[in-house]
Design a binder for these strands. Sequence first.
DNA 1: AAAGACTTCGTTTTT
DNA 2: CGAAGTCTTT
Length: 800
Amino acid sequence: MQSRLTEFQRQAVEHFEGPLLVLAGPGSGKTRVITQRIARLIERGVSPRRMLALTFTNKAAEEMAHRVETLVPGSRVWVSTFHRFCARLLREYAELVGLHSNFTIFDTDDQRGLIKRSLSDLDLDSTQYAPAKINAAISKMKNDLITPDIAEAARHEQATMDFKTVVTARIYPEYQKRLRESNAVDFDDLLLHVVTLLQGTPELRSELDHQYQFILVDEYQDTNKAQYEIIRALAHDIPNLCVTGDPDPSIYGWRGARIDNILRFESDYPDAQVVRLEENFRSTKAILRVADKLIEHNVHRKAKRLQTDNESGDDVKLHRFWSGKDEAEEIASQIRRDIEAGVWEWSDVAIFYRVNWLSREIELALGRNHVPYQVAAGLAFYERAEVKDMLAYLRTIENPADRAAGLRIINNPPRGIGKSTLEKLIRFADKHELTLIEAAEHAKEIPELSAAPTKALLAFAEVMKHLRDKATGSVAELLRSVLSETSYGDGWRESDDEQEQQRLGNVLELVLSAQQFDEQAGEGRSLQAFLETTSLVSDLDLVDESAGKVTLMTLHAAKGLEFPVVYIVGFEQNLIPHERAMYEQEDARRMQMALEEERRLLFVGVTRAMKQLHLTTTVERYSFGRPLRTIRSQFETEIECEEIDHTALRQTLGSAAFGKPIPFDDEHSQEVPNNDWLDFDFGAATPPKGSGVFFESADEETSDDSNAFPANSKKTPDPVALKSKVTTGAALLRSQAEDSEVTALFAVGNAVRHPRYGLGEVVEVGRMMKRQTVVVRFDQDDRTETFVADKCPLTPVGLR
DNA sequence: AAAGACTTCGTTTTT
DNA sequence: CGAAGTCTTT
């Protein structure tokens, strides 16, 4: 760590009033500058109460608060995440946006449940309207400040009723109505409601603007439209606004982040001072060289150099293994060897991946090798079913209108309230505008309800009444009451089922965390505050860098952190860059943007490394339980330079590739479309929903295989059906390539992948009725099939 | 109504 | 392959 401030760092620290943009490259000492700046402001006599620092994660907020506290003990500057800040504001002014201050913050599960119920009440098919997709669409609208009113108004302008219109005009308003009925908000609402509040109440906006005279926003490139508006509103009259960020690690475009916000800061605030921090104090020259090579491929980018006076360091290592298992095992044993040799501490090492499921194999291998590790993601603590159940009880107590919570607990643990009883209850509750519990209290008045269910409902109402009476002081006490009064988890203690023991452990851990919460006590430490805290924790918050463990996390979660040794696994096409990041985009331009975001994501991973960086990849990888041949990441070519060590790659491969052909030997490698690949339809690699249809055969029922596609069927897929349903990679390629090039993709001996049959090899290329045909023999079941070259769902499996 | 067998479905990233 | 959802039995 540098000891003195550089000239540029000093400028940022010393800047006083007015707008300031700090463009901080990776490892440029940004946090240090921010915290010192805050300390300097206090020194100049600015009251900490007049300052507000906004971050994206609790972890960043805590880190910043801690460092300021170290510089200026007792200063107590308010550092908060956007969401937490908005939640606090909303509690205070809830009524202005039609809420009550005890509103609940819904999580993704609650949202999905709400959407499902909206769908069934609107008589819409949830297979056609996938709740997850709808959720994403609604979230996107909210991030872009499209309120349900605006969305609904747009309904009349649309004649067609396609997916988008239905979601916008019907589901979104219905969903929002139900949220309100539950006195609840979703994550996006926290921001959206605050924007409404600030824009709809000028006096309040002005008051807050004057209250927060110095505002600081970290990671400004990640702000979405809502956040942008909030900042504008709070820094309007008194624009003492300091934002820090860097366009290069902007990786949240998919959740509405607008990289433009930082790019246009200077035009938003014409008298803004701009400070660039470009010197990197973190990484070796070799690592930065790779980062630089990579990011310079982004077209939409202000050119910027990465420079450091640090040592050159080891080459960046590129390893290729046969399988994901080899990859995990080799990494685990390599880490173990390094630590035993005394080179590093466990906590020096981090492993990053693009998708959470990749952690599984790694975790298993680390376990086998006795490597202590912690995972920042996956099933986070507050996501566990038993923890959510407990919290649902608390939520129901705090906000009885919260129907998602009520539905979760009404028959959990089982107390004789089944599906039909529940339906009657809901109908009754809706009719009389009651909460579920109020309705249960009046069970005797519900028509068509027999004795047993009535009794069950009354008993439930009684339990909740008791619990409500206990909701006065300690949250931990209340949780214990929930456990004892509901008999939740009874029997787990005696069980020798490992899973049940674990559940018990989780419940006890929740009680413990509630106890700690109680002990921090003081004002405002209410049940409401506890619930808010649990709703707004992130996976990352539970990571402890001093735990003496190897840390596993997604590339997204890695932002803002640094580790001496970094492994990035699954460095393969369709993983990094991720296929779904791009082929779900609507047009080529969006795809290009998405690709650039994937590049920035890898850039984030690379620039986390201080001393050593390992990129690992495999020849085959399991997906949905089936092995698929991988394709080299297009980024692999992009980072090609002297600082990359390929020898590791060849060695690890040789021993692992037992009994199998080595497929990336240069003679056999083939071109995979590189930049033009944007027009490539990735639907070929991942068949669209319902595409299994083409492969259905008349004698399907004779199959003894449970798969949708009979493994033993000798039928050739019907080319007509194929044509109608799938636009394949090959077909699209063909549309812009010469016929001969298509054929080249399917030359005899080439490896191809079929969405159903898996990997195969082209054994024959021929012609049939003016059409180019390919005969492929698949590894699986020794199957041989004939396809029309430009109409088949075959993807060439190349390695370059 | 509850527990178990069977089937289908899916897998980006997160506050 | 594993989770979640549906159907079947008690």
